[in-house]
Amino acid sequence: MVLAFFKTFAIHSIAEILDKTKQFENFGQIDMSISSWGIFGKPSRFSQRKAAMKQLDPIHNEYTISNEDFLYTLRTFIYEPVRWNVRFGWRKEPSTKN
């Protein structure tokens, strides 16, 4: 999850907002861990997921962020952990042969 977040710094428009506001430096690590656990944690915790997502709206609404940047960030949180695990994870992929 953390790797996915740091990948967003490679996008100039996202990095510019994060640097300018100092939100990540001052609060981001705590906010990220709380909200990412709430959103991507146990699947059975829908109410916690919804509450965590509600907390993110006011934070992001203070800034002008393009839809493309929102989508890029969302994609990194969904796909990057999977890519990393496929490449470096210790578990073998399940065999399709019987």
Score class of each variant (00 low, 15 high):
F5K: 01
I34W: 01
Q29C: 09
A4D: 07
D31W: 04
L56R: 07
M1C: 10
F24R: 02
K22L: 04
I34V: 14
F88D: 09
K54Q: 12
P58L: 12
Q23H: 06
H60Y: 06
D31G: 00
S95E: 07
S36P: 00
W37C: 05
S36L: 15
N98Q: 11
Q55F: 06
I17T: 08
T21I: 01
W37E: 13
D57W: 08
L18R: 06
E25V: 05
H12T: 13
F77N: 07
R87S: 14
N26T: 09
F27M: 03
P81I: 02
F5Y: 02
V82G: 01
S33H: 14
F6I: 01
L3R: 11
E62Y: 00
N98A: 14
T96R: 04
R45S: 10
V2H: 02
T21S: 15
S13L: 03
K92L: 15
N61G: 03
P43D: 03
I11Y: 01
S33G: 01
Q29T: 10
N61Y: 01
F9S: 03
L56H: 00
E16T: 12
I39Y: 01
I39K: 05
I65D: 09
N26V: 03
R83G: 11
F46C: 02
N26G: 09
L3H: 07
I39M: 13
T64S: 14
K97T: 11
P58D: 08
W37D: 15
P58N: 08
S47C: 01
K50P: 00
S35N: 12
Q29E: 14
F77T: 06
E80Q: 12
I30F: 11
H12Y: 06
D31L: 09
I39F: 04
V86D: 08
V2Q: 10
N67M: 13
F40K: 01
Q23A: 06
L71C: 09
K7A: 15
R75S: 10
K92I: 10
F46H: 03
D57Q: 07
S13C: 01
P58S: 08
S44F: 05
R87H: 09
G41I: 04
S33P: 00
I39S: 05
K54R: 11
D69Y: 07
S95P: 00
N61Q: 08
V86F: 09
W84Q: 11
F9T: 10
E93I: 04
S13A: 12
E16S: 14
L3W: 02
K20L: 13
I17V: 15
K50F: 02
E16G: 02
L18S: 09
F46E: 06
H12F: 04
S33T: 12
R91A: 15
M32D: 08
T8M: 13
D57Y: 09
M1N: 09
L3E: 15
M1D: 11
A4T: 07
T8G: 05
E68Q: 13
S35W: 10
M32A: 15
E62Q: 10
M32P: 00
R49F: 02
Y72C: 06
R83W: 14
E93F: 01
F46T: 07
E25P: 00
E16Q: 08
S33A: 13
L71K: 13
K7Q: 15
